[in-house]
Design a protein around this nucleic acid. Structure first.
Lengths: 259, 259
DNA sequence: CCCTCCATATCGTCG
DNA sequence: CGACGATGTGGAGGG
């Protein structure tokens, strides 16, 4: 890795400038790193550690990862993420709510994150600590998102004829012995209609889900003949389409709104 | 945020030491930041940007996020992750395979990640760039993990009597019109057995899946009476248990091995 | 807590 | 590239 311009010299352990929101260490000694990381976690900051490390996990499953350069993210809510060069998902992690413990140990820096229910532990051992970053975070801002299944449901409720002329929605999340139905209503002829919504192309799972609700409601209402199940999604896979036909279920193409 | 020890002064834009594996910038100008980030991406390094920014996404859905301090991770494989103080998941992201573009623009630093199929774009606009990090990553190391569904299957195949005395596995991933069956075999009486495995407590979804396979194979083999469907998992939920009973399916408790 | 289900799910594998 | 199912799925909402 060749730098694009000249680098200034700064001794190991010498902290980078602290403007009150960022603090960094370059190649710190384990003891120095541990002190700064603990301080950052105490201050509810986001802490990063980059270096050569091994990772061990034990809990719902168990895993081992040999030595390599990794990027560790410690969140103020107790979450931990270990990222490698590849993949959107962290190679190892710990969910929010964990307790982070940082200890220098035999020349290495050990970061241990633990929780109970379920009992889980993540251990990241840095044999080389190349960078520590402490970043002051702002209060969380609300993410606004459109194009979800809830948006698709709103679209259908605002314009029920998108399902078919004469459709009348009567309830959302109506309970059945098999779970809650997305949209429950009646068609023009007064027949009960059960709608299962999917925000994207639907597969066999979606059909099974719809089938469960229809079965449950047929048993519950003893009205086997006058019950329709309709899958609403942008499209269906071929196997899903066959499953729908086999069980007398229907499909209506509809996309979630984009605004 | 009060530092645990004295900070040295370093001017903005003055790069931190470059030992060939880490390079950082503190409070860089947008143009300087863009240059270093481009250089880092070019070098297949992992690049981080911390600062105050807004985030916009448009693609499979669409989202907006107001200004706040966030941590951006740009991966050499083309992935992007925007992390806030909270949550294990990034608040916004882009999967691997994207093209990252970095531009200074009207006093801000814009990072844009795009891909096609599906067409998606993520735009992170930093109104304040507080830190840039460039980290040289090692080649990926294999993660070894135990306790998966595959491990549970191996356990069952090595000791078929764990299902029941006399069980004989005949195939794994046997194809049916509804998909592949986890384990396919015969019981002591010569009846066909379909096994669906779950590494953790099983819910209604797992029962539906098993039911689909049993239905498909009954139609395919025309042997409605001599076909058994067995769900193998550490445990089942109450609703799943009722669904199993309703459809004449069975349950056997078994956990994935831990070593 | 458990249960249930959505997700810009992501990821691997297979056709 | 699409389909299909596993995931240490995570996260939200309800009981």
């Amino acid at each position: 890795m060749t730098a694009p311009s000249e680098s200034s010299a700064r001794e190991p352990d010498e902290p980078a400038p602290d403007d009150g929101r960022v603090r960094t260490l370059e190649r710190p000694e384990p003891a120095t790193a541990a002190e700064t990381i603990r301080w950052g976690l105490e201050a509810e900051a986001l802490v990063t550690v980059f270096g050569r490390c091994t990772v061990e996990y034990e809990g719902r499953a168990a895993s081992e990862l040999g030595a390599g350069e990794r990027h560790l993210l410690l969140k103020p809510d107790g979450g931990a993420l270990v990222h490698t060069a590849e993949g959107q998902q962290p190679v190892n992690w710990q969910p929010p709510g964990c307790v982070h413990a940082v200890e220098p140990r035999e020349g290495t820096l050990e970061v241990r994150s633990t929780r109970s229910t379920p009992a889980e532990e993540l251990l990241v051992s840095f044999e080389e600590t190349l960078h520590v970053g402490v970043f002051a975070m702002s209060e969380p801002d609300q993410l606004s998102i459109v194009g979800t299944e809830a948006d698709l449901r709103e679209r259908l409720l605002e314009e029920p004829s998108l399902l078919e002329p004469g459709f009348q929605p009567l309830a959302i999340e109506r309970q059945t012995p098999a779970g809650a139905v997305d949209v429950f209503g009646e068609d023009r002829a007064g027949r009960t209609v059960i709608v299962e919504l999917k925000r994207r192309r639907a597969g066999p799972d979606a059909v099974s889900q719809l089938r469960r609700y229809v079965d449950a409601l047929e048993r519950d209402l003893h009205t086997a003949t006058d019950l329709r199940g309709i899958l609403v999604a942008p499209s269906v896979t071929e196997r899903a389409e066959r499953l729908l036909a086999e069980h007398g279920l229907e499909f209506v193409a509809l996309e979630p709104p984009r605004e």
